[in-house]
Amino acid sequence: MLNMNLIVIPILLLLAATAVTVARIRNLWAAVMFTGIYSFLGASWMLILDAPDVAFTEAAVGAGISTILMLATLSLTPKKRHRDGHLQSDDFEEKPLKHSPFWPLLVVTITGCALVYGTYDMPAFGDPNAPIQVYPDPSFVAKSQPDMHGLPNVVTAVLASYRGYDTLGETAVIFTAGIAVLLILRKNTPEDDRRANEQEAVS
């Protein structure tokens, strides 16, 4: 246990500090940027935990696309529109809380304590005899080599072949979400409104 990577300690401390900062900061613009930092720190930890594929994806999607989408949303939802079109940072201030955050804190503390109590039954970090390492039989890692004609990355083998239908379903989810976003954001032209009114009048 003591031979663990010492770089983990500052990363975990920064993760915790970033999460608390996001919770406390009232400026949404800053909060979004801190979320990007949080994702990136998370990706760094994943890299240390031997999951480079997830780390890449988290850095690209969590810290990249997600931040861009949120910044785009922020620029479309300021508190008030200025005539000259310029936005100021106080347009993105969250309203201060009216009541003390006692109840949310209580709920969060109780849930957290229950979860920590639950971890006492969890296998220790990195335990090779943990159920997750024994079931399903990990020999599929060795078998993936001949199955995939020498493809070295087991994560790719599982994602694209053994669980290929799952990835197909995932693609369907993205497609559906994309269509839904387009439909939600579609602007009604005055022409559309007039036609709808006419139809209403007829029926």
Partner: peptide, 18 residues
């Protein structure tokens, strides 16, 4: 290291952004 959690989380990240 076990590749299965990585695979599951790759799917989850992409569905999450959707």
């Amino acid at each position: 290291t076990n590749p299965l959690p990585s695979v599951l989380m790759l799917t989850a990240i992409v569905v999450g952004i959707a």
